[in-house]
Each structure stands twice: as structure tokens, then as C-alpha cells.
């Protein structure tokens, strides 16, 4: 396998109506598999959230990360994703989330650190065009002078890499801190005592509507890498729907690391 470049691939965009958190988890698994098997072209998927969620990383402890009572009280769905990394607090309209499903050849020979920055170079360019000077802060954060903007995670499956990113557009920090347990040890080398203050969302930085930022990001990706319009195949959606129900809504998976 030799290294490929972005332009070597025929990128397709998926941007559908809002979907449930469990279905999003399942779509990441299914679409990564489809790209790895060569049945789907490399794809950029923009997420629209059907409801509030806490998404914990593959290796995080459910009870250590999430206050289950607070999540239930606020009607927040708690799901575990297939990639590592940290917990995210999601409310529809408050985040911009996307996934890139690419053949592993796109990051062939790269270190983890290089691969993260490579997959999000277009995002940094898009943010720069919106007036935000953003950069990659290893291991997996996109940050700016004002604070953290986004977190990324990758997972390798078969012949494909899944790279997904959640960016803060707006944030209810009070609610987030009620639901997520963020310990002092985690913040020990971040130079701040406050998790809320670590994040500087895109809304305050750009003054733009969320949809306008998404439109701009899509345009930047299209200009740099090429991007055609695509859609989910019926069999992909059916498979993801089944996985959402049987795996990603199950206690066995969500509490896999209790």
C-alpha cells in the first residue's frame, strides 16, 4: 500500500436530517467498514443531532465519566463511541460534528500525531478564513488563542480510518459540568482549573450562525480536496439502524467499561 493524497480520492458528502445519538455511533461503524471494504467512496459526513447526548470514549469508565442521575434528569442519552478519547457533551445546535471515512493509505506511514493534523488541515484553513487563528494541540485538540475549539478521535478498522471531530459552537457549561465528571487530575497539565474556561466556542468567536459555519467548512473541503454530493444507501441505513438498537443502545456496550 502506497500513500495516497486527498485528490487521489473521489470524496462524497453525507449531510442528512437529525439522527439519534445511537444511530450516529452505528453509522460511524458501518461507514468505516464500507469504505474499508471498498464498497463506498471516501466520505465526509456532517452530523445533525436529534437529541442531547453524552458521548464517551471507547476506553472510558461509564461511572467515572458520567453522572447518570443528572443525565436522566436532563433527558440526555449516554452512548459509547467506537473511538478512544474523552467524553463530549452534546446539545443539538451547540456542536458541529463531522466524520471522515478514508482508506488507510491516506495516512500511510504517518505517526498518530501527524495523522490527526493531516486529517484536519482543511478545518484549520476553514477556521482561518473565518478569522479564527486555530492550530492543532497534540494529541487530539484543535485550539485557539481563546481556548479549545474541538476534539478529534481516530479509529482504524479493516482498511479504513475513521476520523471524527466535535467542535463547540455554543455551550451550556453549567449543564455540562452537572453531567460530566471532570476530575482535577485531568486538568493538571492544562494550565487551568476550570473545564468550562478551557472551551471557547465558535459562536462567540465568529458571530456566525452554525449553519453558515458548516456551509463554509463544506466549501473549503470541496475547494481543497474535491467533494461530490452523496447519500446513505438504504442497506447502510438499515444495518446502522439495527446496530443502533442492538449494540449502541445496549447496556452491554455502553457499560463495557463500567
Amino acid at each position: 500500500m502506497t500513500r495516497t493524497l486527498w485528490r487521489d480520492h473521489d470524496w462524497h458528502l453525507i449531510h442528512t436530517d437529525p439522527q439519534s445519538p445511537a444511530l450516529h455511533m452505528a453509522l460511524d461503524e458501518v461507514l468505516t467498514h464500507e469504505v474499508g471494504a471498498g464498497r463506498r467512496p471516501p466520505t465526509l459526513r456532517i452530523w445533525e443531532w436529534g437529541g442531547p447526548a453524552v458521548v464517551i470514549g471507547r476506553f472510558q469508565s461509564l461511572r467515572n465519566e458520567v453522572d447518570g442521575d443528572a443525565a436522566r434528569r436532563h433527558g440526555i442519552e449516554v452512548v459509547r463511541r467506537v473511538s478512544g478519547g474523552g467524553a463530549m457533551f452534546i446539545e443539538p445546535g451547540n456542536t458541529i460534528t463531522y466524520s471522515i471515512y478514508a482508506p488507510l493509505s491516506l495516512i500511510k506511514g504517518m505517526s498518530f500525531q501527524e495523522a490527526y493534523a493531516w486529517m484536519d488541515a482543511w478545518t484549520l484553513e476553514a477556521l482561518g478564513e473565518l478569522g479564527i487563528k486555530a492550530w492543532y494541540q497534540p494529541l487530539n485538540d484543535i485550539t485557539s488563542e481563546g481556548g479549545k475549539i474541538a476534539g478529534a478521535a481516530q479509529a482504524h478498522r479493516g482498511g479504513a480510518v475513521l476520523h471524527h471531530v466535535t467542535m463547540a459552537y455554543d455551550i451550556d457549561a453549567t449543564k455540562m459540568l452537572q453531567v460530566l465528571r471532570i476530575g482535577r487530575e485531568k486538568l493538571s497539565d492544562k494550565g487551568t482549573q476550570s473545564a468550562a474556561k478551557r472551551v471557547d466556542p465558535l459562536r462567540s468567536q465568529t458571530g456566525l450562525a452554525r449553519a453558515a459555519i458548516i456551509d463554509h467548512m463544506i466549501a473549503t473541503f470541496r475547494r481543497l480536496h474535491g467533494l461530490g454530493d452523496g447519500s446513505l444507501r438504504a442497506d447502510e441505513l438499515a444495518q446502522a439502524g439495527m446496530l443502533a438498537q442492538e449494540k449502541f443502545s445496549s447496556t452491554a456496550w455502553t457499560a463495557d467499561v463500567p
Binding site: 472510558q60 478519547g85 479509529a155 467499561v257
Partner: peptide, 15 residues
């Protein structure tokens, strides 16, 4: 023993 955290492992059953 349960190890957990916001790290990355491939493959995931290495945990």
C-alpha cells in the same frame, strides 16, 4: 482491575 481513560488503543481489545 479496570483500566480506563481518554487514551487511544488499536485494536480496542488490547484494553
Amino acid at each position: 482491575v479496570q483500566v480506563s481513560g481518554d487514551f487511544f488503543l488499536e485494536p480496542d481489545d488490547a484494553l
